[in-house]
């Protein structure tokens, strides 16, 4: 029981971090960035390359991964999202294509076989009698720090408030002197960085493989659909629902069913409450 609670809490923290970047884009650009999982994958591989193949310090590996994520996000906005302005279906299809292309790129550079990332912090500890790896513990703590930082940023800075403003009313933002295009660009950058750093932890928790982008993408879609648009709190709460659901299913039913209930939850919420459990009715 303690094992489930502790594992659930730690995994949920990581899931919340992963979903944040996806939620930001969905809230502000109103598009599902189906290449989001690929940010995580590339983040994981960049970290692997820098700290395991080049042997540089881990912190540099994490920084390089984050930087790469930011760059990918910025480029994607400039090269794909902005030119396709307003055409959400076209953006979503091209992001999905992009994810597949990036998968092929990873296979080309790193090969088909999955790779094991060494734990970022090795070792195991006991919390309340439950065995916990330092790796997931550290991942969860850093996730929480980043999420709190993001929350403070969004609520207390001009840029953060501009992001909220654009997500709630683009015209209202524009007449307040905000350039929605610039806010979008910044958001894509932040989203890319969040995805990539989440990917480092996710890969160290699971493994590195060219298809690893699918799992976290589904988790993100689920958390955002169930949690609703535009809410860091909603995302956080639903990340815990889904994290615990997975841990309980794996421990009590069968590991193979890990993602099934998450999917069922998505359908259930789509049918019963399309704006999500914590979502807001769209204005107008």
């Amino acid at each position: 029981m303690t094992q489930i609670i502790i594992q659930g809490l730690l995994l949920s923290g990581l899931y919340a971090l992963i979903a944040m970047g996806f939620m930001l884009i969905f809230s502000i650009g109103r598009v599902l960035n189906l290449a989001y999982g690929a940010y995580l994958m590339v983040g994981g591989y960049v970290y692997f390359w820098v700290s395991q193949q080049l042997g540089l310090p881990q912190i540099i590996g994490i920084a390089a991964a984050t930087m790469m994520g930011v760059i990918m996000g910025l480029l994607k906005h400039r090269l794909i999202v902005k030119p396709l302005k307003g055409d959400h279906v076209a953006v979503e299809i091209s992001t999905l294509i992009l994810a597949v292309v990036m998968q092929a790129g990873v296979v080309l550079v790193f090969g088909d076989a999955s790779k094991i990332l060494l734990p970022i912090v090795p070792g195991v500890t006991q919390i309340e009698g439950a065995a916990v790896t330092y790796n997931i513990l550290v991942a969860a703590i850093i996730s929480w720090i980043i999420i709190i930082g993001l929350y403070v940023f969004v609520r207390n800075t001009y840029t953060g408030r501009a992001m909220q403003a654009v997500s709630m009313d683009e015209k209202g933002a524009a007449i307040s002197g905000i350039d929605p295009d610039r806010v979008n660009l910044i958001t894509w950058g932040i989203s890319g960085g969040l995805g990539a750093v989440g990917g480092v932890f996710f890969a160290s928790y699971t493994q590195l493989s060219p298809t690893m982008w699918v799992g976290p993408l589904i988790i993100s879609v689920a958390i955002v659909i169930v949690g609703g648009i535009g809410s860091i709190m909603g995302t956080l709460i639903v990340a815990h629902i889904i994290g615990f659901l997975e841990v309980i299913v794996v421990a009590k039913l069968a590991p193979e069913l890990r993602g099934v209930f998450t999917m069922l939850l998505i359908i259930f919420v789509l049918v019963l409450r399309p704006q999500g459990l914590f979502g807001r009715e769209e204005a107008h």
Partner: peptide, 27 residues
């Protein structure tokens, strides 16, 4: 400065936060 017909406020932000968004260019 513009106060439009349908207001175009940010519905899930506080009054103060709405005003602070207006301060974006005149910090």
């Amino acid at each position: 400065g513009y106060a439009p017909e349908r207001f175009n406020l940010f519905p899930y932000m506080s009054v103060k936060a709405n005003l602070m968004v207006g301060a974006h260019t005149a910090r």
